[in-house]
Design a protein around this nucleic acid. Structure first.
Length: 832
RNA sequence: GCCGGGGUGGCGGAAUUGGUAGACGCACGGGACUUAAAAUCCUGUGGACGCAAGUCCGUGCGGGUUCGAUUCCCGCUCUCGGCACCA
């Protein structure tokens, strides 16, 4: 008979809830620990990624709680966004109705998993009580100039009918959500000045030792800092100048052309100063180039397009005249949209001149080698070397040349040292209904007017109907759009764009700390106590999305003075869980390899589901779903259940007096006692230090095997057995809390296991009374012996050398050397 | 191209500071119980040769350091992920 998880699991869930067992308050006893999971989007039902995420989180929260920590462990729903609108159209309902229904269902699922959240802190981002404060943050940023509106070429997703932030364009230029190729559109949009924090966002990555290297690298790449010189280039005979940026100012004497992006404003200027035919040619070329999408540009495979404008630029370093070209490989939104072309030392410039027959001037040579012949060069010489053809800078090693020439440019007033970032400001406008309204109105007289703080929230009308064609439902609500200007009282229109939902998720972890608070987004003293998050668990797909935005928000919040000035980072520990895979692919409806969580819980119980997912793989690696593996986990729990249930009577009767190692006579009981405490020791270290939950489970299985094979003879033996069962249940409880509670009760314990203290390994029970020592001959394993532990190396070597087996092994051979390792091995090096 | 992770049995995965490679589980083989099956229990299981004792091979590939290397060093290779005409 399998154990009855269907009765046990709800029973304990109810008891925990009735007791408020997991309610938590700031300032309670013990060191604080904030354990946070990436809150789910209410898509309908939890999937296996959620099971994994929340099994890891709940395990951590429960483990630390048992270890005396005051653990903040909350949950919520990231409940604005596209899918709700799509569902509303498809099912002819309202996004709010669909979202609420899904949240209710998913709350039920989270409870059936046995997660130990403090449910009083539940946060739902679509509630006015929450998004009011997102709007408030927007206003604060507007005041500080961190939120601004500008006309810009932006990423547009046709399927989603909205613009996207750079971070939300993934792979080779597709929408992160629906994978539609993104196109550029010129629109007036709201941006957040995240680039103001680029430097700090980058620098502080070095102060996050609790983050995986992968994520740090991804963010470093994304922010993409480079140091160089920004300088002016004069266009001969026009009085115009072009700004350029370079990281290799040391190659300034090697310029053979200047190239402009097609969208560069000076292009039009040059066209207007050209004669008719020429003008049309330039404008036509520029228009053709700028119309091409990012995908088309890169798909060209590096084959560069360009056109000579006929104008000449003056190299500031030496006064030389070089042609000015328009080139498709110059990006309009990086640097200045114009470059100095140095084909000898930049591969792209090299490719360009080889195609269009422009010159090459080497200005860096390898140390000890002559200046290369440009005609013989087959590729650009990108590596550092020694300057040449560079006037007074000849002979300087590259880093020195960069330093000297930069200083020279600054001295002459030709340019300035500057740092460039790849990171762009965060475009937060969305042409969508189901989101947080941007609290701004447009007045014909006053222009852009922020909604006053005391008028917040700007509520999203819930009686809007999402139209079939999917456009923003707010556009069909003139009654909502038309309003009065807060400044002049005249007619004004509300902003109909809503905020990127990533705004909602950029600060929710602060809101958990002060649920329902209505004076501010959160109480500063709550944040001061609980923040930063000690462990944040979620998928790696947010490495350059949510995890950058939340860092930015935290810095902004700190600058607003809501948290102490030194609280600059939201998450000190980060655990990026791997994907859940089935049959070699990520679970997805289209592949038909989805395993339903409810079905698994119904068939095997939550404890089994949790145990399997924690056991099958270390948390940061991808995990192969295996139906057989689930059965294995279930088999183990049944085994534990039978073991305890079968001996329940004698366990209840057994002495609860602590039996120290020294008081145990029988060898069997001594061995079990050692097994118990080495298990406690290993499980504790695996969870706390290594986060290797899979090996922790393996240890518990070993202890179970040991307990099952154990034959207690007397009362002391029985007491040790009871100690073993208690220890097993304590260790098991963060993994499989329901069955552990049930068996805890069954052996006659009163009180809630989940609130009990974690067991402590007894030092003297970790000592062994014999060790296995191996004999190696020339490094190869030959024999094994039992030896008393702690023998010093000489003694160990001596004893092993005296053994018959050893003598036989080395008979007739010259012993060159004997190496002994305490408690481990003796290696005899022989000749002949 | 640059950056980062990874490569261990049939599979998921273990291996303190270099010190018994393959813990634990899955799958599979043999056995017990059963009329039978399921469940459960016992047992075997990296490969090759061997009746056996045992010997040899074995942690992506090739070198090196060392008494001894999955672990350290050098050079490759494959794979996953990120970035990428970023000046």
């Amino acid at each position: 008979m399998a154990y009855d998880f269907r009765a046990i699991e709800p029973k304990w869930q109810k008891k925990w809830e009735e007791k408020g067992a997991f309610h938590v308050e700031a300032g309670a006893e013990g060191p604080k620990f904030y354990c946070l999971e990436m809150f789910p989007y209410p898509s309908g039902a939890l999937h296996m990624g959620h099971l994994r995420n929340y099994s890891i989180g709940d395990l951590t929260a429960r483990f630390l709680r048992m270890n005396g920590y005051n653990v903040m462990y909350p949950i919520g729903f990231d409940s604005f966004g596209m899918p709700a609108e799509n569902a509303a159209i498809k099912m002819k309902t309202h996004p709010a109705v669909w979202t609420k229904k899904n949240i209710d269902h998913m709350i039920g699922q989270l409870k059936s998993m046995g997660c130990s959240y403090d449910w009083r802190r539940l946060v739902k981002t679509f509630e006015p009580d929450y998004y009011r404060w997102s709007q408030w943050f927007f206003l604060q940023m507007y005041k500080k100039g961190l939120a601004y509106r500008k006309h810009a070429p932006v990423n547009w997703c046709e399927t989603c009918g909205t613009v996207l932030a750079n971070e939300q364009v993934i792979g080779d230029g597709v929408c992160w959500r629906c994978e539609t190729p993104v196109v550029k559109r010129g629109l007036d949009q709201w941006f957040l000045r995240i680039t103001d924090y680029a430097d700090e966002l980058l620098e502080y990555l070095d102060k996050l030792p609790g983050w995986p290297e992968r994520v740090l690298t991804m963010q470093r790449n994304w922010i993409g800092r480079s140091e160089g010189v920004r300088f002016d280039i004069e266009i001969a005979g026009t009085g115009l100048t072009i700004e350029a940026f370079t990281t290799r100012i040391d190659t300034i004497f090697g310029i053979t052309f200047v190239a402009l992006a097609a969208e560069h404003p000076v292009v039009e200027e040059l066209a207007s100063r050209s004669d008719g035919a020429r003008r049309a040619e330039i404008l036509g070329f520029a228009a053709r180039m700028s119309q091409r999408s990012a995908i088309e540009r890169t798909a060209a495979g590096g084959d560069k397009m360009g056109m000579d404008t006929g104008f000449k630029a003056i190299n500031p370093a030496n006064g030389e005249l070089v042609p000015i070209w328009i080139a498709d490989y110059i990006l309009t939104d990086y640097g200045t949209g114009a470059i100095m072309g140095v084909p000898a030392h930049d591969q792209r410039d090299f490719d360009f001149v080889r195609k269009f027959g422009l010159g090459v001037i080497p200005v860096v040579r390898r140390e000890g080698e002559p200046v290369p012949d440009p005609a013989e060069m087959t590729e650009a010489a990108v590596a550092d070397g020694v300057s040449c053809n560079s006037g007074q800078f000849d002979g300087l090693p590259t880093p020195v040349a960069i330093e000297r020439i930069s200083a020279w440019f600054e001295e002459k007033g030709w340019g300035k040292r500057e740092t460039q970032y790849r990171l762009r400001d965060w475009l937060i406008s969305r042409q969508r209904y189901w989101g947080t309204p941007i609290p701004v109105v447009y007045c014909d007289r006053c222009g852009i007017v922020p909604v006053p703080e005391e008028s917040l929230p700007v509520e999203l009308p819930l009686d809007a109907v999402v139209p079939e064609n999917g456009v923003n439902a707010l556009l069909g609500r003139p009654d909502w759009i038309n309003t009065t200007c807060p400044e002049c009282g005249g007619q004004a229109r509300r902003e109909t764009d809503t905020m990127d939902t990533f705004i909602c998720s950029s600060w929710y972890f602060f809101r958990y700390l002060s649920p329902g608070y209505d004076k501010a987004p959160f109480r500063s003293e709550d944040a001061k106590y609980w923040m930063p998050v000690d462990l944040y668990i979620g998928g790696i797909e947010h490495a350059c999305l949510h995890l950058i935005y939340a860092r930015f928000f935290t810095k902004m919040i700190s600058d607003l003075g809501l948290v102490p000035p030194d609280m600059r980072e939201p998450f000190t520990g980060l655990l990026t869980q791997g994907m859940v895979i089935k049959d070699g692919a990520k679970m997805s409806k289209s592949l038909g390899n989805v395993v339903d969580l409810d079905e698994i819980i119904n068939k095997y119980g939550a404890d089994t589901a949790r145990l399997f997912i924690l056991f099958a793989s270390p948390p940061d690696r991808s995990l192969d779903w295996s139906d057989k593996g689930v059965e294995g986990a279930n088999r183990f729990l049944n085994r534990v259940f039978r073991l305890v249930e079968g001996k329940a009577d004698s366990l209840r009767r057994a002495s609860r007096q602590h039996v120290p190692m020294g008081a145990i006579e029988s060898a069997g009981a001594r061995d079990l006692k050692r097994l118990i405490h080495s298990t406690i020791d290993r499980v504790t270290r695996d969870i706390r230090d290594e986060r290797q939950f899979n090996t922790a489970v393996a240890r518990m299985m070993e202890l179970t095997n040991g307990l099952a094979a154990y034959k207690p003879a007397d009362a002391t033996d029985q007491a040790v057995f009871r100690e073993g069962v208690e220890s097993l249940l304590l260790c098991l409880s963060p993994f499989c809390p329901h069955i552990a509670e049930e068996l805890w009760e069954m052996i006659g314990q009163s009180g809630t296991l989940s609130l009990s203290l974690w067991p402590k390994a007894e030092e003297d029970a970790l000592d062994v009374d014999k060790v296995t020592v191996v004999l190696q001959i020339n490094g190869k394993l030959r024999e094994q012996f039992e030896m008393p532990p702690g023998l010093d190396r000489d003694e160990l070597a001596k004893r092993v050398m005296e053994l018959d087996q050893t003598k036989k092994r080395i008979e007739g051979k010259d012993v060159v050397k004997v190496i002994a390792v305490q408690d481990k091995l003796v290696n005899i090096v022989v000749k002949g």
